[in-house]
Amino acid sequence: MSKRGRNLGKIKGFTIQFLPYSEVRDLNSDDRIKKILGIVLGNSILILQGRLKTEEEARLIGDTMAMIDHVKTFRGIELAVISSNDKAGFFGKMKSGLANALSGGDLGAVTIIGPATIVKEMKRNPKKIELLLKR
């Protein structure tokens, strides 16, 4: 076992929820964000297939801020998106754009959202996302 693995110590209880895109595809932006925040407020780390629209990401941040003011123990979220489209060229983006239009979302992407009380940091680079948890 790696040194990092041996030193994990006690981590407070949490669950990891995987949500297929089909679960949010038919929701409007309000309900989509409400669903996501509901999961995160329940002390779960959410792994969502696909990604939100950029406007929805901004709204998620705004709603998160409003929630910090209203829920005593809530400190916000850690959020990261990794997409197969990030390094694609013009034609690659056009191709995936067409595929996304047909499927209703960028299914090649993965969005990870966790409560800041559990996730200390999400380190992202174009190839991976690392989750650093709080002890």
Partner: peptide
């Protein structure tokens, strides 16, 4: 700092939109 912070990507994405 690491530029791949989702906040940076979200801000720029929203401006482009």
């Amino acid at each position: 700092e690491n530029p791949y912070n989702q906040v940076n990507i979200t801000i720029i994405g929203n401006l482009v939109a």
